[in-house]
Amino acid sequence: MPVLEISGLKKGFGGVQALDGVEFHVDKGEIVSVIGPNGAGKTSFFNVITGYFSPDGGHILFNGVNIAGHQPHEITELGIARTFQNVRLFPNMTVLENVMVAQHCRTSTGIFGTLLNTASYRREEKEIEERAKEVLSFFGQRLKGYRWDQPAFVLSYANRRRLEIARAMATMPELILLDEPTAGMNPKETAELTELIRQLRDDRGYTVVLIEHEMRVVRDVSDRVVVLDHGVKIAEGDYETISQDPDVIEAYLGRPAEPDNG
């Protein structure tokens, strides 16, 4: 049964049709890569799913519920988490706080509980902190110990990307959308993260959709690859099939020059 099922998704910005009737689905426990040349509409696709833009048309069924046009925080609460292409942490909050904030929609203590320092408030705060630490431990020693209390802006680029993933995990989602998770990482870090993306599914049971430009990552982790170009899905299948597909090659490299001109 598909976790996410999208049909006829449309979104235009003025004259540009960013998404022009995209059909898409993800099954539970799948890792799907969305690829496509620059400006193909990949990030718009994510933005529409997570509620940043409401679609002009089409359905987005998440576990059978149409989430098109919902508020982003409602969608997060339903179980879709995301990261951002241009890493967007809360730079002046500590690493731990970044992950603690992300549990907002899974916790409930209001102002009165806080002010009265009720037992349930204290328990919940403790749980939030422990869960945050647990989530961060997913990245081994990289975001542990003294890192907890460091403001996020001091982190290295790769660590920021990791923290963003940790933050997405902390919202306790079913589906994680990763927008270019390895952008700006060196080959070693990329390899490490590729492994972690697989673990996200294997050990933690998340369903993962990622946008990625690094073809090695796409090849290594994806069960299925979806290619977008000009807001339309032009191909779909496993990596081998996709890499041979003439439409995909054309989208990336352009059409070969017509010989009869010369």
Partner: peptide, 10 residues
């Protein structure tokens, strides 16, 4: 925006 994405009802 990110707060919203992290499930905070802004």
């Amino acid at each position: 925006d990110v707060a919203e994405a992290m499930g905070v009802n802004t």
